[in-house]
Computed example of a mutant assay.
Amino acid sequence: MPVVQMEILKGRTLEQKRAMVKEVTEAITRTLTCPPEAVTIIIREMEKDEYATAGVLNADK
């Protein structure tokens, strides 16, 4: 049973998240030869001030 954990910045629409999990599920079922029902996807959303790259908060960019 594949379990995928995704961390994304807040601000994506419900439609975008629906499309993302659909395509990720399709890729996993195709490459691992498993049914869609076996795929679990966990989405964690972060605020921009909870994410930094190269020592700079994303909120400061």
Results as ranks from 00 to 15, higher is better:
2 P>K: 09
2 P>R: 09
2 P>M: 07
3 V>W: 08
3 V>A: 10
3 V>C: 07
4 V>F: 05
5 Q>C: 05
6 M>K: 00
7 E>I: 12
7 E>Y: 11
7 E>K: 14
8 I>S: 00
8 I>W: 00
10 K>T: 02
10 K>V: 02
11 G>L: 00
12 R>A: 03
13 T>F: 00
13 T>V: 07
14 L>D: 08
18 R>V: 07
18 R>P: 09
18 R>F: 10
20 M>T: 15
21 V>H: 12
21 V>Q: 09
21 V>S: 14
21 V>A: 14
23 E>F: 10
24 V>Y: 13
24 V>S: 12
25 T>K: 04
25 T>M: 05
25 T>P: 00
25 T>H: 02
26 E>A: 13
26 E>H: 07
28 I>Y: 13
28 I>K: 12
29 T>P: 09
29 T>H: 08
30 R>A: 12
34 C>K: 06
34 C>F: 05
35 P>K: 10
36 P>I: 08
39 V>T: 03
39 V>K: 04
39 V>A: 03
39 V>C: 03
39 V>F: 01
41 I>P: 01
42 I>K: 15
44 R>E: 05
46 M>A: 09
46 M>N: 08
47 E>R: 00
48 K>G: 03
48 K>S: 12
48 K>A: 08
49 D>N: 14
49 D>Y: 13
50 E>S: 14
51 Y>E: 03
51 Y>M: 04
54 A>H: 08
55 G>R: 05
55 G>S: 07
56 V>A: 10
